[in-house]
Design a protein around this nucleic acid. Structure first.
Lengths: 162, 162
DNA sequence: CTAACTGCAAATATTTTGCTTGCCG
DNA sequence: CGGCAAGCAAAATATTTGCAGTTAG
């Protein structure tokens, strides 16, 4: 969560800068996206947006995320599970995702030197770096008995942590 | 393309090692996968497999790739475009993908130090490295007039190069 | 005023599944 | 043999789209 004030959300501002028409529903979706600090899929976005304003249809959410992705305001992610997930494009620093293969939980991490490395790779291949996507899959290493915490070994099928 | 001989394909061997039953259609799909040096989606796999043996249904291809992915023999990729793509898991060296945002073409590249870097990241976060996925998006940098070759600026919508 | 946007429902696209039959080990 | 696997078609998901009515700029 970020601003939450009555003023225009960060994403709404970007929409304006890109010359998009700011309708009521688009403003709501923009706020939901601006406030999200996870990686919601369309259904989840629809749920959150509906809570703020019930006059919104899923089709609009789909249309909006597609539009914002084309404009480079949003980035689509695929963490497995069939549905596309979205998160706001970050200006400078990129962050990456480590997915726990046992429960699908997503952990974010940064690695400053990484983007620079990728820029060089792209350049070496004759390309200008546009964007990147990095997903690391790992298995939680059994901690060397740190404290008294329940193991909690689950194995849900669908919908894992965002 | 790799072996092409009448003997068991590399992937078929892996199936056996994993205790999977080798049926006729599974053997054909395994051969197609072994021979592929690109990233076919299910429909393309189905097409290639059907060419070798018409008694194969798409459902079987779907079931097979899912099974092989679970066994770690195949890895699923998402290069955008809605369909999942597959490629055989590599033993040691990983390779990555640079996608040309202008035409969807995929260029493979390697970066030996990269996997080591990611292993360390996973470790730092308390995980054992299982696998990773890295997609780099770039725009072809206008070459400094190399030779006489047509520009060929296309902009296809669907189905781009594998 | 009009091009862009929305809702709704129908259309697509992709992947999964139920059920019966077949074949590997 | 016995159970895993395959075919086929229907079902389940996910996403897109046609059309008519709204609305931001």
């Amino acid at each position: 969560m970020k601003s939450q004030s009555a003023e225009e959300s960060r994403i709404a501002q970007l929409c304006v800068e890109h010359g998009l028409k700011m309708t009521g529903q688009r403003r709501v979706i923009a706020r939901v996206l601006s406030d999200a600090d996870d990686h919601p899929d369309v259904e989840e976005l629809y749920r959150r947006a509906s809570a703020l304003d019930s006059r919104i249809s899923v089709a609009t959410v789909y249309r909006t995320v597609r539009l914002l992705e084309e404009k480079g305001i949003l980035e689509r992610r695929d963490f497995g599970g069939g549905r596309a997930r979205y998160e706001a494009t970050e200006g400078g620093r990129h962050h990456y995702h480590l997915i726990d293969v046992d429960n699908g939980k997503v952990i974010e991490f940064e690695d400053p030197e990484h983007e620079e490395l990728m820029r060089r790779v792209a350049e070496r291949l004759g390309f200008d770096f546009v964007s990147m996507r990095l997903e690391l899959f790992g298995k939680k290493r059994p901690q060397p008995v740190k404290e008294t915490k329940a193991p909690a070994r689950a194995r849900k099928k669908k919908e894992a942590g965002s």
